[in-house]
């Protein structure tokens, strides 16, 4: 058993008459397109008709207009690049460090048990607690952003690797022992493949946490990037521009998730990615 809730779906069991025929087929796409159009229409109409205060929640068209205008500005692209740099550097460092630390702490059961409580104590310490230290040490340089990102984004990968190692099937372990595999062979043929799915789940979480902390740092520390641009837009009262920039970060997040999932499907077609279960969730 894994530490995540057991989820059983049995394709041989008919979902019953409650579910519309052809579930998941073209009907699904019709509903998705229709629903999204309705949401977009509401985003335009509710502010326009005054149901929502348009001064603070501008209609969709105004946001799109601001977005188009932003796309033509070099400063927007610089900010996007800066955010992506922090995200990438911090995220990569976190994933690397989390993987290595996870293996070091998880591969030997005794070490795993001895360090479990320490991880439980460190993990809930919020990254924002480090904001003052980051400011003192690095000011608004890239490093202060990266420090926060690494602290926050290291945990999903680390915890997933440790949990994955804890779950390497005892039967598989015994089989490997019976086959007299060397430690290196064991790592390559038994441990790594068993841990890979959990690691990937951790990676996905880490990537999204890293983006969150990147813009959070830009927002409160003032490192250059989209987060700071949002704060400036809010300060300057250019409301549609603020929403346009927020939407851009959302799109960045969506693109990253799609890329990670696509890579996952190619690398591990058998692994239906699962969200984190109990005790393995992301923490900031």
């Amino acid at each position: 058993m894994t530490a995540s809730p057991t989820v059983r779906t049995d394709p041989a069991v008919d979902p019953g008459p409650a579910v519309p025929a052809g579930a998941g087929g073209p009907a699904r796409w019709r509903w998705a397109v229709g629903g999204t159009l309705v949401v977009l229409a509401l985003a335009e109409l509710l502010p326009r008709t005054g149901v929502l205060p348009s001064a603070h929640l501008p209609p969709l068209s105004a946001v799109v207009e601001a977005l188009v205008e932003q796309l033509g500005r070099p400063s927007f692209w610089t900010a996007t690049g800066q955010t992506m740099l922090g995200w990438l550097v911090g995220g990569a460092a976190a994933v690397l460090a989390g993987t290595v630390a996870g293996f070091l702490l998880g591969v030997v059961p005794a070490v795993r048990r001895a360090t479990a409580s320490t991880l439980d104590f460190l993990r809930p310490v919020p990254a924002v607690a480090l904001v003052p230290v980051a400011i003192l040490l690095f000011g608004t340089q890239l490093e202060s952003k990266v420090l926060l990102v690494v602290w926050a984004a290291i945990w999903p990968v680390l915890m997933q690797v440790v949990a994955g190692l804890a779950e390497v099937d005892p039967v598989a372990r015994e089989t490997a022992a019976a086959l007299h595999l060397s430690p290196a062979q064991r790592l390559r043929h038994l441990i790594a493949p068993s841990v890979l799915p959990a690691w990937w789940t951790g990676l996905r979480l880490s990537v999204s946490v890293a983006l969150v902390m990147t813009v959070a740092a830009e927002l409160i520390i003032g490192n250059a990037g989209l987060g700071k641009a949002v704060a400036l837009a809010q300060d300057g009262g250019v409301v549609p521009q603020m929403y346009a920039l927020i939407a851009v970060t959302g799109v960045l997040g969506v693109i990253a998730d799609v890329l990670v999932r696509a890579a996952e499907r190619r690398l591990m077609p058998w692994h239906v990615s699962h969200r984190a279960g109990i005790g393995r969730g992301a923490s900031w």
Partner: peptide, 8 residues
């Protein structure tokens, strides 16, 4: 919406 970083 889920992909929008909450701090923003």
């Amino acid at each position: 919406l889920r992909a929008v970083p909450p701090p923003l």
